[in-house]
Amino acid sequence: MGNSPRLGDLPRADPEQRFTANPTNPRPRTTAVENDMANRPDAGDVFDVRKVRKLVELMNEHELAEIDLKQGDQRIRLRKGGEPVMMTATPAAPVAAAAAPAASAPPAAAKPAADDSNAIVIKSPMVGTFYASANPESAPFIKVGDQVGPSTTVCIIEAMKVFNEIPAEVSGKVIAVLVESGSAVEFGQPLFKLQK
């Protein structure tokens, strides 16, 4: 069959990037600064300032316009551009104040990704629509903080009504969900970030 496209083949990369993530534009990487958060006692608190900084770095690395995380009744929402960082947290007001400067730094000046020796990205194996859960009423397959194994289903990618359950194929703890459910994804687009 060689390299010529076969009937039914989907493009392996679509130049029409409708998404904020841009996997074809890797950022320079530097030494890890704070990649051991999972081992710290406060690792479960999404409002930890180090975690916020990490999220901002993730946003920059993957050129995400927005990150919206929920954990219990806490929520953190980071958005790039003219708007300030928004947080709706009941128990963590002081941290929110401390977090703002980290996120309001312009993307270009932000520290390059401070990690990645320990991070694994799960990428989309195909073009299609990303679904975080089996149906709109059910809980997502995985969320930030979950431990996954190689056979854990992380999402469904649908193309032309073919619903493919995507296994993690790696082990680790979920540190970021990079795509919103119902969004179109390209081949190779980062979907999740895990920590080994």
Partner: peptide, 12 residues
């Protein structure tokens, strides 16, 4: 049929 052709199985 290759994995990349799976979506075309709908029309097929």
């Amino acid at each position: 049929i290759s994995l990349a052709q799976w979506p075309a199985l709908s029309l097929t």
